[in-house]
C-alpha cells in the first residue's frame, strides 16, 4: 500500500502470459520471448544492411554499425584482453546488442518491460560467458589453467587450504551467478522503480490531477525513465566488459 493505493504484486509486473504455444511448458512464447526475438532480429537486420553496403568510406547505417564495432573494440576488447581478443568480437558483440535490446524495452512504450528483469535471459548469457571463459582457459593453457587458478603461484603452501576453496567458489561457482544477478537485479530494480512511479501517477491522477504535480511523481517518472535509458546502456556494457575480463583472465591466468 502506497498512499492508500494498492501496489500490484510482483508477479503482475514481471510475468506475462504466453501467446504462442500456450499449453507447452517448454515452448511457451510470451512477451519476454518476443523481446528476445527482437534482440535477434533488430541487430541482425542492422548488420545485414550495413554489410551489404559496398565502398571504402562508410556512410549511413554502415557508419553507425562500424561505430558500434569500434566501441566494442576500443572500450571493451583492447583494455581487457588486448589485440588478440578480436576473435571474440562476435560473442561480445552479440552479448552487447542482445542485452541492450532486452534492457531498452524497459522504456519503450507498449513493451515497458525489460526482458532481463526475468532471470532466464541473464542466466543463459552468464552461463554462456562461464562456459566460454573456461573453454578459453583450457584451450590456451590446458589443464594447467585450473592449476593456475586454484593454486596461484607465490602463495605459501599452507595457505592453499584457505585460497583454493575461495578461488574455486569465486571463480567457478559464484561468478556466473553474480554475473547474471548483477544484470537481472539492476533491471528488475529499475522496472519496479518505474512501475512504482507509474502507479503513483495513475492513482493520484485519478484522485485529483494536481496532486501529481504537488508530489512530483510525474517529473520523477520522467526523470527515472531517462535514468533507466542510461542504466540499460551501462548494464549492457558492464555485462559485456565483465565477460571480456573473465576471458582475458582465462587467457593469461598468471595476471
Amino acid at each position: 500500500m502506497i498512499f492508500g493505493l494498492e501496489f500490484p504484486s510482483i508477479e503482475n509486473i514481471v510475468e506475462w502470459p504466453n501467446f504462442l504455444f500456450k499449453d507447452s511448458e517448454l515452448f511457451g512464447f510470451n512477451k519476454i520471448g518476443f523481446i528476445h526475438f527482437l534482440g535477434l532480429v533488430l541487430p541482425a537486420a542492422l548488420f545485414f544492411i550495413a554489410g551489404r553496403q559496398k565502398g571504402l568510406v562508410p556512410k549511413g547505417v554502415r557508419n553507425f554499425v562500424e561505430s558500434i564495432i569500434d566501441f566494442i573494440e576500443e572500450q571493451i576488447i583492447l583494455p581487457t584482453i588486448g589485440a588478440e581478443g578480436m576473435r571474440y568480437m562476435p560473442m561480445l558483440m552479440s552479448f552487447f546488442l542482445y542485452i541492450f535490446i532486452a534492457n531498452i524495452t524497459e522504456v519503450i512504450p507498449f513493451f515497458q518491460m525489460p526482458a532481463t528483469a526475468r532471470m532466464a535471459g541473464p542466466l543463459v548469457l552468464a552461463l554462456v560467458a562461464w562456459v566460454a571463459f573456461i573453454a578459453v582457459g583450457v584451450k590456451h593453457n590446458g589443464m594447467g589453467y585450473f592449476k593456475s587458478v586454484l593454486f596461484p603461484s607465490g602463495v605459501p603452501k599452507p595457505l592453499y587450504l584457505l585460497v583454493t576453496p575461495i578461488e574455486l567458489l569465486s571463480t567457478f561457482i559464484i561468478r556466473p551467478f553474480s554475473h547474471a544477478v548483477r544484470l537481472f537485479a539492476n533491471m528488475l530494480a529499475g522496472h519496479i522503480l518505474i512501475v512504482t512511479f507509474a502507479v503513483l501517477c495513475i492513482g493520484l491522477w485519478a484522485a485529483k490531477p494536481t496532486v501529481i504535480v504537488e508530489l512530483l511523481t510525474f517529473p520523477g517518472l520522467i526523470a527515472f525513465t531517462a535514468f533507466e535509458v542510461g542504466v540499460s546502456l551501462i548494464q549492457a556494457f558492464v555485462f559485456t566488459i565483465l565477460a571480456a575480463v573473465y576471458i582475458g583472465l582465462a587467457l593469461h591466468p598468471e595476471h
Partner: peptide, 8 residues
C-alpha cells in the same frame, strides 16, 4: 572503463 568495472 576501470571505474565501471569497479562499480560493477
Amino acid at each position: 572503463t576501470t571505474m565501471f568495472l569497479g562499480i560493477a
